[in-house]
Amino acid sequence: MALANILHLGVKELRSLGRDPMMLVLIVYAFTLSVYTAATAMPESLNKAPIAIVDEDRSPLSARIVDAFYPPYFSQPVLIDGHKMDERMDAGLDTFALNIPPHFQRDLLAGRQPEIQLNVDATRMGQAFTGNGYVQAIVNGEISAYLERHRNLSTPPVDLVLRASFNPELNKVWFGSVMEVISNITMLAIVLTGAALIREREHGTVEHLLAMPVTPFEIMAAKVWAMVLVVLVATTLSLSLVVQGWLGVPIEGSVPLFLTGAVLHLFATTSLGIFLGTVARSMPQFGLLLMLILLPLQVLSGGMTPRESMPAAIQYLMLLAPNTHFVMLAQGILYRGAGFAVVWPQFVALLFIGAGLFSLSLARFRKTIGAMA
């Protein structure tokens, strides 16, 4: 009888979700356009940054430096006069303005150390921070290549060979798309369960459930399995159709093993969503409470920045959060092709954290229902 009640109540949750168009739009958006946008809209590397060059030397070396700036890192350089440099930057036309002084090539061949001025529009923080190093590397590379024909430069004693593992193309799309799917799993699990509970309270259907021969455990278990199923199906479709199909990201490890870990993670996060739904009295309160809980979970889980770069106290504290372990196992499986023998500690941690959150949420849920009765 208990299993039948859990099954029928879960089907009721699915029907209720199907009649909520806003939640359906959120689910579709979170696992399609949101994933694509996060993977492609904000490039980590420089992309078509506008640059202007003041060439006061007019030498073969300065021409070589000008020709070294081209897409996709930079837009086609605009050759300008010196008096237009500040004017163009004030108007926001250029992110970088490179000024090559007169007699630059002659002073360089004479053994002097001439200077090249680089002006940067620091209000464009992303391009300014990354592009500074790009410009310096390009200029130094062209100068070195030019001097090799005029001087006998010593060969470096060590040749550094780079081998990028797990992402040989250093493609940010491979990282951004998968991490967005992982983040949206946590977000939707909390939102769907918490919103379902608050929606029932606002519509008065909780009182109807209290008149039925069902227990708080059955009500909560039904909400958990229904929302877990919805997010799990959406995750599977997103990985196959959006990540692998649309974006062309290769998945190294076992998708079924990842989905198994996702089930344990969803068990914990849906329980957390129910707990937050019992604390909040309305949807606006739930939204504010969600920002206070979800943002620290996402930022400090290791998905945005490595955990090793965080203070030690934060690292130990975040071991109590389910998505910290989920990010570790998801990266291990999907990026590095890790098997269960590698990620089993994260599975065990998620199981214990999920059981703890479920017990805590069940006690709070019983108290809430008791107060309403």
Rank of each mutant, 00 (worst) to 15 (best):
L320Y: 09
R19S: 15
P114D: 00
E202L: 13
I116C: 00
I6N: 10
Q315E: 08
V224K: 03
G92S: 05
A30Q: 03
P72E: 04
Q127F: 01
M291Q: 13
M227P: 00
I65V: 12
E148F: 08
M291V: 12
S254T: 07
L24A: 10
L24C: 05
G133P: 01
E56D: 13
Y73H: 11
V25W: 13
Q244H: 13
Y146P: 04
D121I: 01
M304K: 11
I219D: 00
R336N: 09
V158R: 10
A110R: 12
L350Q: 07
L232S: 13
D107Y: 08
T260F: 15
G248L: 07
G141R: 06
V230E: 05
R19K: 15
L320K: 03
I333P: 01
A145E: 12
D20A: 14
N47S: 08
E207R: 15
N132I: 00
L147Q: 07
L160E: 07
L295S: 05
S34W: 11
A211R: 12
Y70T: 08
G176A: 07
E142W: 03
W174P: 01
Y134K: 00
H325M: 09
M1Y: 15
S183C: 04
L93A: 12
G302P: 09
F340P: 01
G337C: 11
V135K: 04
A349T: 02
V263H: 06
A349R: 02
G133Y: 10
S75E: 14
L276R: 01
L276T: 03
S361V: 05
L9C: 09
A196C: 09
V242Y: 02
M125S: 02
A268Y: 04
S165H: 14
T32I: 11
F326R: 05
L351G: 08
M318G: 07
P50Q: 10
E252K: 15
E115Q: 14
L319F: 10
V233G: 06
L294H: 00
P168R: 04
L319W: 11
L292T: 08
A226Y: 11
M42P: 01
L3S: 14
A49C: 11
R151Q: 12
D20P: 10
I6C: 12
I219G: 08
L61I: 07
L26C: 11
F267R: 03
L295R: 00
A63E: 09
L109E: 03
Y146R: 08
G194N: 06
L98D: 01
W225Q: 11
L210H: 05
R112S: 05
E115C: 00
V279S: 02
F365E: 00
R364S: 09
V233R: 09
A91T: 02
G339S: 07
H325Y: 10
Y134W: 10
A52K: 02
A39L: 01
V249N: 03
P216R: 13
L109Y: 07
G176F: 04
V255L: 15
G245D: 11
